[in-house]
């Protein structure tokens, strides 16, 4: 919402994230350039969600590191499943959770912050939903609500985990417009996606991941037939008898 954007790049150096000792993301190096719009694509179990959590600082790297240049604020949109939709809370209060970086546990919510939250609700097409309980929303409406919270967070780097799942065409078109706006404002956006047509149409950069990085670069090259075949070859099962990884740390 503010015009000035700090250049916010996320650099990965030989990053390995594990579940137990098994790698979920294996020796990944590269950079999400400031203002870039990148899709992360890969088969189920490829480590996409784990990577986003690693980028947000929620999953401690087993090896390598994630470095953030400048003082950028990161916002993560998790998959909807992690939300307790039976919790008795009104939509506006959910949107105002996005103010956490400023309000913290105890600072007051100023009138203009509140007004921004109301605006954000209107921007995602939920005007008039301020006092509606979250439990009464449909899946698509809930996703719109979470986008409104992201708007209020006003982050420099946005990490979106399957943002268009389980929403209808109209909702996903509306939400996609917000993603384009963020890109236009110079924010860095990274989204995990499954719809390859959508990726080819809207996302300039793609990281194709199958635990090991397969390709990272301009979307047309990254999603070449050869690369996609390589990604499909990933063995989903953990190799229990696997020896220690010998690649240079």
């Amino acid at each position: 919402m503010s015009a000035r954007r700090k250049p916010a790049a996320l650099r990965l150096e030989n990053l390995t994230l594990t579940h137990g000792r098994h790698p979920a993301v294996h020796h990944l190096s590269g950079c999400f350039a400031p203002g870039s719009l990148t899709a992360i694509v890969g088969p189920n179990g490829a480590g996409k969600t784990t990577l986003l959590r690693g980028l947000a600082g929620l999953h401690r790297p087993e090896g390598g590191r994630v470095s953030l240049q400048g003082e950028a604020r990161i916002a993560l949109l998790p998959q909807m499943a992690s939300l307790d939709r039976a919790f008795p809370i009104a939509c506006l209060d959910v949107v105002m959770q996005g103010l956490w970086a400023r309000s913290g546990a105890f600072r007051e919510i100023r009138a203009e912050d509140r007004a921004r939250a109301v605006q954000a609700l209107a921007a995602v097409g939920l005007g008039g939903f301020e006092r509606r309980p979250v439990g009464s929303l449909s899946a698509g409406q809930t996703q719109r609500l979470l986008f409104a919270r992201l708007l209020v967070q006003d982050a420099d780097i946005l990490l979106l985990d399957e943002p268009f799942n389980a929403v209808d065409a109209k909702t996903s078109a509306d939400l996609l417009r917000l993603v384009r706006d963020w890109h236009g404002e110079g924010r860095t956006v990274v989204a995990v996606l499954h719809d390859l047509d959508l990726v080819a149409r809207e996302f300039p950069e793609t990281l194709l991941l199958a635990r090991d990085p397969i390709a990272w670069g301009p979307t047309a090259e990254a999603l070449s037939a050869a690369n996609r075949l390589k990604a499909r070859m990933m063995a989903e099962a953990w190799a229990d008898e696997a020896g220690r990884c010998q690649r240079a740390a």
Partner: peptide
């Protein structure tokens, strides 16, 4: 003091973690 963090943690634990609550 604990009200907002408790609500946040109950409603959306992964958001609470990402926001450093």
């Amino acid at each position: 003091f604990a009200w907002r963090p408790l609500v946040l943690e109950c409603f959306d634990p992964s958001f609470a973690a990402a926001a450093g609550a």
